[in-house]
Structures are given as structure tokens and as C-alpha cells.
Design a protein around this nucleic acid. Structure first.
Lengths: 181, 181
DNA sequence: GAGTACATGTAATTAGTTACATGATTGA
DNA sequence: TCAATCATGTAACTAATTACATGTACTC
């Protein structure tokens, strides 16, 4: 499906960007909430996009001698990206989840071990949710206009918070369910 | 991490099972809601578990000449599985989601295209949710006791329904957000 | 006899992770 | 000067998908 290709094209389409900054986006920024790639996957893919003439590159000298490569989308790349954007795809496989896998097999785990697991998950998902909610406050109650970069940021952040909320609610349901046992 | 290993051990731990039935579990049954593997991945992994002496195999003749292989867990396999069950792992990367990726880049998609996307997603997630809810009615309002196989089934099904609910709620929020644009 | 489900595998490719490898720049 | 961050890459490996390959059993 080469989804990474389109994730990169999307970022480069916004404005010229380096491989380093793309990697940061995947590892720390908003994008990390729905896509991920290490720099060791990003750099080879950039080379490939260059080969396919979907992007072009410009060498920038930073300071004394440090070099960085600024990638810019080509008309051909832009065209492919926009075409991909409007493509309708089937749902695809449900994401894997190790904790749900463990829950499925609780008939071989002690009640106290599972309870510990649940509390550990709750704490992890709660802190993730809190940090997401903090980012979301940037929008306060001002929903950005459709068509802006901010709309995308807002929509995916909202989705990430809701996903965490739902996961936390599920964990509480599991806690409830074991309390009667 | 070799999570597939433990997913297989967990299934074989319940009762002796064939590679074919394991694959069915991954592709069509409850497990598909949190783990997945094609038969081309399952068979080699079974061979590896056999090498590691975590499972054993028995050849069964079905009818005239058709053969199938029944895998059974060994004490060593059982021990490793139970140890894995109680392991606490860090949260891991957020699952990838192509539709969220598209949403992130809506600043290059027409409003009408995105609206079509949203309705398409709504219809897909709604039918998935409905089929999950149907499976959940098997438990009516009778929450299974902790420690039974049924508890695991119930908990992960509930989680799957809640995940779909939350996704659907997010899609409606996105629809709302574009309605004012 | 045809089609579907049962049953098991391998080969080739793509996707992703971990580890290796190097060097520059900035700020404390 | 030391640590963190900036910046770019490759090599080796693991995980997963798609395609190839074969044969049985059951039902219409």
C-alpha cells in the first residue's frame, strides 16, 4: 500500500522539510498519534521518492560545514498525493493490541496479577490522555475552519483524546467486572 | 517481542488445536479484534515452537487419507506462556490509522470529498459495531466470572464495541466540525 | 462435476526495528 | 568540556503480506 510514501509526501507538500524534521514529526509530534516511522525507514524512502521524481532536493549549508537536505514536492508528487487523499479504502485489519491479547487469556492469570495489569494500564493511558488534552487546549473552544492546517491538527488530536478516553473507560469496565468475582 | 509466539501458545494452551483452526481464529473469530496473522505466518511459527519444544504435535488421519496436525502445549511451553501473561510492558507505539492520516491532511482535500470519506467510514464502522454487538448479546447482561474462558471473550468483545463506539463518535464530531465551515 | 471448505506448506517481497556508524552545532 | 540535539545514512534482522503450490472432503 506504501502508506509511508503518502505520509512523507503529505508533509513535504505542506512546506520544504528535512528528513530529520520528518522523523521528529513521526516520533514526537501530532503525527505520532496515527503514524510512525524511524529515521532508518524515512531516509531510504526519501531516496526512493527522489528516484520516482515525486520530490526534489536542495542542499543547505548550516553554519560552518554542516549540511542538511531540504526536500520539496514536485508537481508530479503533488498530483499523486492529492489523488491518494481522496481514495476510499476498505477498513483494513483491526490494530494489534498486546494488552487485549493478555486480557483474552486471563483464565490463566491470577486475579491479583490482572488487577495489577489494569492499574498499570490505567496509569499509562491516563498520563497519555492528559498530555493529549493539554495539546488540545491550544484550540480552547475555537474549532478551526475546514481547509486549514489547524483543522487537521484539531481533528486528529480530538480523535486521540477520545481513543484514550474510550480505552480508559474499557479498563474501568474490566475492573468492575472482576470486582464481582 | 515475538508476540505471535505467545498468541499461538495461548490458543494451544487452551486445548489441542490445528494450524488451520488457529488461522481461522485470527481471521474470523474474536481474536481478530486484537491480533492477526495469515496462515503463511502461522505455519512457520508453529514449526519454530516445535523446535523450541514449547509444543508437541500429533498426526491425525481424517477420513480416507487427509492428515491434520494437532498441536499440544508442553510443560515448558505452559510455563513460558504463564510467565509472559504476567509481564508488564510499556505502552508501545500508537496504532497506525490511514483514515486519521488522511484527516490530518484535509487542507488539501475538498470539503465534499472529506464529507464523503466521513460517511463511508461511518457506514463501515457502524456495520462492524453492529456485528460486534450481536456477538456481545450472547452474554446478555450476565457478566462471566473471572477465571473462565468466557470472561476473556466478554472483556475483549466489550472493548471492541467500545472502540468502535468511540471511533463513530469521533467521526460525528468531525462531521459537526465541518458543518460550520 | 463444480464449488466451497478443509488442510498444510514455501517463496518472494515489503515493511519495520535494532544496531551500527559518523560528524557538526549549541548551550550550560 | 560535556551533554544534548542536529543531521544523515547503512546493515542486519524480524515481522508481515502476497503469491505460489498442492491435495482432500463434502455438498449441491
Amino acid at each position: 500500500m506504501r502508506t509511508l510514501k503518502y505520509a512523507l509526501l503529505g508533509l513535504i507538500n505542506r512546506e520544504p522539510i528535512t528528513g530529520y524534521d520528518i522523523s521528529k514529526e513521526f516520533e514526537k509530534r501530532i503525527m505520532a498519534n496515527f503514524w510512525h516511522a524511524k529515521h532508518s525507514q524515512v531516509y531510504p524512502e526519501l531516496k526512493r521518492l527522489l528516484d520516482e521524481e515525486l520530490i526534489s532536493v536542495e542542499l543547505i549549508i548550516q553554519g560552518e560545514k554542516m549540511e542538511k537536505k531540504l526536500y520539496t514536492i514536485t508537481p508530479k508528487g503533488h498530483e499523486e498525493f492529492v489523488k491518494w487523499l481522496s481514495r476510499d479504502e476498505p477498513l483494513g485489519v483491526t490494530p494489534k493490541d498486546v494488552f487485549r491479547l493478555r486480557t483474552f487469556f486471563t483464565d490463566f492469570m491470577s486475579l491479583s496479577d490482572y488487577e495489577k495489569h489494569l492499574h498499570s494500564q490505567l496509569s499509562k493511558h491516563n498520563s497519555k490522555k492528559e498530555s493529549l488534552e493539554k495539546s488540545l487546549t491550544a484550540f480552547w473552544n475555537n474549532i478551526p475552519q475546514y481547509g486549514t492546517k489547524e483543522f487537521g491538527d484539531y481533528a486528529v488530536l480530538l480523535g486521540a483524546v477520545m481513543r484514550e478516553d474510550s480505552y480508559i473507560a474499557w479498563l474501568y469496565k474490566c475492573l468492575d467486572a472482576i470486582k464481582t468475582s
